[in-house]
Design a protein around this nucleic acid. Structure first.
Lengths: 150, 150
DNA sequence: TATTGTTATACTCTATAACTATA
DNA sequence: TATAGTTATAGAGTATAACAATA
């Protein structure tokens, strides 16, 4: 029954991504947050970027980030603080509440991942984790391929 | 250098999903389409659902689907046709142009997947494809686990 | 002059509630 | 009465262009 069906790498990755995003969105909605607000919390977990840097991290225009941070700030999830190096810039940081809610969503998501991968053996889960990591890494650093050209 | 870094299954899947969606969105934008419009084309590739069924397939409210199909129809990507079984219902189908554009996006995405997985060996790519497929399948049919409980 | 961030504007996407037409 | 779909409305999210303040 669990025989030879394979969606192929393209459809498998596409469908896996929709499934993953759906799970993330579900837990975000449980905290009354959108996916992008949740991504904001995730990105700020270990950073205090400027608006500009935030725009690059999220792949959005700076004007979009203004609105995003506006809404997050209005809900007490993040805080704007003036930069001391550059009086034009502001830094964005997580509030205690934002960090707590972000963790809650991450925990819920983790439980889902565990549940959805429980049909895999420990070795297979490790394999999937390793392969996914390598794809992510090779995307982030396209130069770090098999040979190590400059 | 490509030693023992592993993001762990949770972060690896989350980041892989963002990466995948980003690639999809990029090719969609290349055809001046949003991700959800592209999903619409994908869902209609081998179906002619009613608005109701479409809402379920996309996980949206029926009123959201009205607008979605409105915009797609205005751009000549899809077509509404009255259902003969039920005069309240309409069926949505792909136009030739919609099918062509959907295929173009799928092709571009496929090229990206190939490129981003080219650091993997053929065997590893197959492994990733198989594991991702199993996760997707086990999500779609939660009952089809190792043992086969009713 | 160039950069950082915001504002103004317009469009897409989404849900809720109320509505029309058919079953 | 119940279901299929649309409309009205409100709000989030996004980009482009123009702007203010600072570098």
């Amino acid at each position: 029954m669990t025989g030879g069906d394979d969606l192929g790498i393209v459809d498998a990755l596409a469908q896996l991504s929709f499934l993953t995003q759906h799970a993330l969105a579900k837990h975000a909605a449980g905290q009354d947050l959108s996916l992008i607000q949740t991504r904001l919390l995730g990105v700020l977990r270990d950073r205090e970027p400027t608006m500009q840097e935030l725009a690059r991290l999220l792949g959005l225009d700076k004007s979009s980030v203004t609105g995003l941070v506006d809404r997050a700030e209005k809900r007490g999830l993040v805080r704007r603080t003036p930069s001391r190096q550059d009086r034009r810039a502001v830094r964005v940081e997580l509030s205690a509440s934002g960090r707590r809610i972000g963790r809650r969503i991450a925990d819920g998501f983790e439980a889902d991942v565990t549940s959805v991968t429980r049909s895999l053996s420990a070795a297979e889960r490790k394999q999937l984790s390793t392969l996914a990591t390598r794809v992510v890494m090779s995307y982030a650093c396209p130069q770090a391929q098999a040979d190590g050209n400059p």
